[in-house]
Every structure is written in structure tokens, then in C-alpha cells.
Nucleic acid binder design. Structure first.
Lengths: 187, 187
DNA sequence: TACTTTTTTTGATAACTATCAAAAAAGGAA
DNA sequence: TTCCTTTTTTGATAGTTATCAAAAAAAGTA
């Protein structure tokens, strides 16, 4: 649990009272590689802090699984859309490694926001942070060919290469596995 | 100014005191088509509420201007990265039409966040909202060919077609102007 | 209106990427 | 290790998109 509070403190200093309130509703979860954290069609009722492990987010399109993000240690994990809107998730979240997570329910989080402004500030800054990361990724992918997208991955998020198989990475980069393989062989 | 508070109230109810505080620091700005709101290399010190008009965000890459977003009435406009991190902007924001905007400075906004939790809540929810919109756009563009991206534009944001010239739209969709023209002619 | 400038379209070609099929390599289990 | 399964690579081909060049259409101005 300490890793979570260390992470939060980088964004917003929590008072002891806020830490106490949050600790009281945190739930430790340990699940195995291959299991699902969230499946499409269900409302995402928890946000998870990933203490150990690695997960992928994917959706089904034309009978194919399209993996479009990965999360690693110290990332927050949820179906953002479903959690925020309370509508059924369109995405699935699956463990790529055995993992240790800490969960907070939607309702508990709203209560924490109401009670502790520092926690709401953390939420605001967290949203800003994730927005900027998504924007950065969007811009790097916009109008760029497959080779450049792969080179951007090597330059900016090389840890993905070390923990995720190429099929998922190709999907993440928006190209087929064959294309990614050829790009690598000609590197 | 009323349009701004109407917009805010859809996300978070503000107390009269919060409205008063915010009104006191709002600055009305009227600028002409073609002018710049933000230019690269400078820190973005204001967030703007676009009451009337239309703007584009673009960056320079390999000697070309890449337009990657548009904003219209009731949108918040800023260089998100620069405003949040206080670092120089990498993007430019230019008026596509004469516009009326309301500006709040970074420092004033931080004070409002400190003083009025409902305003910070608005900020959090706003960030969530923009994150979801960006994610939706990202997913729709991921792994989809030019024709489908154009069809998605027609289906989800047709107002862009009515107010923006095709050259900018092609850039927004991540294709050349020639390709967009051909897609349209074969529609 | 006539003229100028900007925007959009069309044509020809080359480069890039997906698809389908199959082989090779790597990883796991007994 | 050997066998089986999964992952990655290679080959051939077709479809998609960028590029360069130029024409046509539309918009703005005197």
C-alpha cells in the first residue's frame, strides 16, 4: 500500500486524515496472468492501482482483438470511460503477468472526493497527467508511418518491448504483426 | 460571460461566491481570424473559453503545419501541456474565424482551485471529459484506414466539415489533401 | 465584371502496408 | 530431452496512400 501513497504524494500531499480514510477503503487484489480485471459489457466499478505486474486494454473489432494500451507498476488502471460515465465498458482489461493491485470502488472514491479536497486535487492532477500522456501518444502517432511509430516506441517507451509480446505491440502501434516483424528485421 | 457559467454548471454547481470570484478574474478577449492565441516556444499562461468562433491547434513538423484539433463554441482552449507543466508550448493556436473568448490566467485559476472546491471539482470533471473525448478519437483513428476515418468524421463531428477548409481537415484526419479529395469524390 | 489568390480536384507513379499462406524459431510441459 | 503449442518471421501479391505536377474550381478584391 505504501507504493500507492508514495505515488499519490508526487501529485498532491495528503493529510494523515485523508490517508486514513483512503486506507480504510482500499482492497488488495492478487490475480493471475491471463485473468480479466474488466470485461466489455460490464460497468467498471473500481479504479486499480497496479503495484506489481502488467496489463493490457483491448477491444474487439471485426473479430480481432485490438490492444491499445498497456499499464505497468505504479499506473492507475480502469476503463476510464465506463468508470466516469457509469455505462458498460467497451473494453477489456487483461493481466499479462501475475499482478498485485489495490482497488477503490467508484462510490468510495466519490466520498473521498467530497470529504478531502486534497484527494480531489489528486484526481484532477491525475486526470491532467493521463490526458497529457495520451495527447503525446496521439501526436506521435498522427500522420506517421509504421517505421516511425516503432522508432518512437523504442525512444519513448522501450520498457514495453521488454515485457509484452510482439503481437500485442503491433496492435498497440496500429500495424499488423507481419509489418512489425519486417520493420524489425530491416532495422 | 453567461455562456461560460452555463457551461460550467453542467459539470459542477458553483456557489454564488465562486461565481463572484471567477467573474472578477475573467477577461474578455476579441480577436480576428488569422490571429494567434498561442505560439510555439512561449508558455501558455491562460485558459480560454470560446464563446464565439472557431480555432485550430497545429504544430510544425518537417516544414509542414500539422493541424490536429479544432475548437468551437463552448470549448475550453489552451495548450494543455504548456499550461499544466509551465513549459514552452510546442503547438500554435490560430483563429479560423473572428472570435470572442474569456480568459483566466494560470495563477488566478490556481487561486480559484484553492479557494473553491467546486471549481476544483469542475477542473477535475473537465479533465475527465476532455480525456474521454481524446480517447474516443484515438480509438476511432487507431488501426483504421483513411476512408473510415473520414466516415467517422461525418458520423461523429460533421460540424467540422461545415466550418473548416479541407486542407486542415485532411491534416486533422492524418491524410494528405489529395487523398481526402479522392475519398470524397468516390463517396 | 475581370483579375488575382487560394482551395480543391485530377493524373501518374512510387512507396508503404495488409492479407493470405507457410516456414522457422522460441517457449512450455512431460 | 522430446513433443507440442505459441510466437515470430518470410514470401508473394493486392490494395492503399503519399508524392509531385498540373488543372480546375472557388473565393476574394479592385
Amino acid at each position: 500500500m505504501q507504493a500507492l501513497f508514495d505515488h499519490i504524494s508526487k501529485f498532491s500531499k495528503l493529510t494523515p486524515a485523508a490517508i486514513k480514510s483512503m486506507s480504510a477503503v482500499l482492497q488488495k487484489i492478487e490475480i493471475a496472468k491471463g485473468d480479466f480485471l474488466i470485461t466489455e459489457g460490464r460497468v467498471c466499478n473500481h479504479v486499480y492501482f497496479l503495484e506489481q505486474g502488467c496489463v493490457r486494454g483491448f477491444y474487439n473489432h471485426d473479430g480481432k482483438e485490438i490492444t491499445y494500451w498497456f499499464a505497468f507498476e505504479n499506473n492507475l488502471v480502469m476503463s476510464f470511460y465506463s468508470f466516469s460515465t457509469r455505462k458498460p465498458s467497451v473494453e477489456n482489461i487483461q493481466l499479462l503477468e501475475d499482478a498485485v493491485l489495490w482497488a477503490i470502488s467508484y462510490d468510495d472514491l466519490q466520498k473521498l472526493y467530497d470529504k478531502h479536497p486534497e484527494i480531489e486535487r489528486f484526481g484532477r492532477l491525475m486526470n491532467e497527467h493521463y490526458y497529457m500522456m495520451l495527447e503525446e501518444r496521439f501526436v506521435r502517432n498522427h500522420f506517421t508511418d509504421s517505421r516511425t511509430r516503432y522508432e518512437n516506441l523504442i525512444a519513448h517507451t522501450p520498457h514495453i518491448l521488454q515485457r509484452v509480446s510482439l503481437g500485442y505491440i503491433a496492435s498497440y502501434l496500429g500495424m499488423t504483426q507481419e509489418t512489425l516483424s519486417r520493420i524489425r528485421s530491416l532495422a
